[in-house]
Every structure is written in structure tokens, then in C-alpha cells.
């Protein structure tokens, strides 16, 4: 563990807590893409299947349980509990255009042709594009609530910090995972436009409107 990965995990944790608090306090999921949240639930489910087979640490296990649990609660909030406030007319991204290519790529490009490894690879590839329905929805509605912007900033920062973690681990531990690094770069690049708007607008108290 290093500071970049720890701060990254905390940023990820914060993003999920911000989202749940927004939903619970405002009793509304307005502006939130249910499709992205479904993709995140798939990402965690396919990535953490080793939850019961391999133990790394209390931290690792508890974070995995938290991520899986909260991802399903979030999907439940959107499609059940706060369904009347779900803006399905603006959440129209065709996720099959993400899942099918990502599934094919995971099958072809992986570190080891085993079920667990292919599912892990699928999860890594899928996570890199899972935010697209949310960014698409923000561009369609034309703006995002500031709390949603904070959620997106924390979520985008987590993988950017993981990139620093991989640089650190490469130089100090000789650890290198090309699949995770490439997918992490794609994932972080997708946030660049948003990061720019967040820093130039939200931090000055303005609202975000995409496309800029």
C-alpha cells in the first residue's frame, strides 16, 4: 500500500458516500445515470469474486464488501426507492455498445485465459467506460447539480491517483500491469473535460454545463 493508492481508495469511498448522501438527503436521484450505476455494480461484482477465495487484508475485504454493497443500494435507490425521481428520458446511453466490445476485448486480451482472470479483465475494461452514460446524461440535461459534480470529481480523481500508484509501484516494487494502466489512462482521460469544468467553474461557485 502507498499514499497514492490509499488516497485514491478514500476518494473512491468519498464519491460513493457523496452519492448516497445526495440521494438520501434530497430523496431524489435526479441527474444520476442509473445505467452508469448498473455498470459499476457489474464492475464490482465481476472484480471481487475472489472475495471468498483469497484473503489479502481486513482493509481489502472490508472495502470490497462496502463497494459491492453500496453499488447495489445505489441501483436499488434509482430503480426502486426513488424511482419517481429517476430521469430515464435523459439516461439513454446504449450500454450494450459498451458491454459487448468490452466483453469481447476481455476474452481476447488478458493476462491468463481463466474464468476469474477474464472476469477481472472485463471488470477493468468496463470500469474505464462505465462513467460514459453519466457524462452523456449531464451533456443531455445540459448541467449537473454541484453535489453531482463533487461526486464525479472524487470518482475521477480515484483512478487518476491509481495512475500515480502504478508509477510508484513500478519504480519501488517493480510491479506493472499493462491492462490496468491502459484502462486507467482511458478512464482518467474521459474525465478531463469534466475536470477542467469542475476546476474552472464549480470551485468558483458556478454550475457545470456540458458541452462546455
Amino acid at each position: 500500500m502507498n499514499i497514492f493508492r490509499l488516497v485514491g481508495d478514500m476518494s473512491h469511498l468519498l464519491a460513493i458516500i457523496i452519492l448516497l448522501m445526495k440521494m438520501w438527503k434530497s430523496r431524489s436521484v435526479a441527474g444520476i445515470s442509473g445505467k452508469s450505476q448498473i455498470l459499476f455494480a457489474i464492475v464490482f461484482t465481476t472484480r471481487y469474486l475472489d472475495l471468498f477465495t483469497s484473503f489479502v487484508s481486513i482493509y481489502n475485504t472490508s472495502m470490497k464488501v462496502f463497494f459491492i454493497g453500496t453499488s447495489y443500494v445505489t441501483v436499488y435507490f434509482i430503480y426502486q426507492h426513488f424511482k419517481p425521481t429517476y430521469d430515464s428520458n435523459h439516461d439513454t446511453f446504449r450500454v450494450e455498445f459498451l458491454i459487448v466490445p468490452v466483453g469481447g476485448l476481455a476474452f481476447l486480451v488478458n493476462h491468463e485465459f481463466s474464468l476469474l482472470e477474464i472476469l477481472w479483465t472485463f471488470s477493468i475494461y468496463l470500469e474505464s467506460v462505465a462513467i460514459l452514460p453519466q457524462l452523456f446524461m449531464v451533456s443531455k440535461t445540459g448541467e449537473a447539480e454541484s453535489i453531482t459534480s463533487h461526486y464525479l470529481f472524487a470518482l475521477g480523481s480515484y483512478r487518476a491517483l491509481y495512475l500515480l500508484n502504478w508509477i510508484y509501484r513500478y519504480y519501488f516494487e517493480g510491479f506493472f500491469d499493462l491492462i490496468a494502466v491502459v484502462a486507467g489512462c482511458v478512464q482518467t482521460i474521459l474525465y478531463c473535460d469534466f475536470f477542467y469544468l469542475y476546476i474552472t467553474k464549480v470551485l468558483k461557485g458556478k454550475k457545470i454545463s456540458l458541452p462546455a
Partner: peptide, 10 residues
């Protein structure tokens, strides 16, 4: 090196 060692990252 390939990374099919046990995954210790989230």
C-alpha cells in the same frame, strides 16, 4: 510481468 499474481488492489 503479467499480473495474474493475487490481486491486492481494489
Amino acid at each position: 510481468s503479467s499480473s495474474s499474481e493475487p490481486k491486492d488492489e481494489l
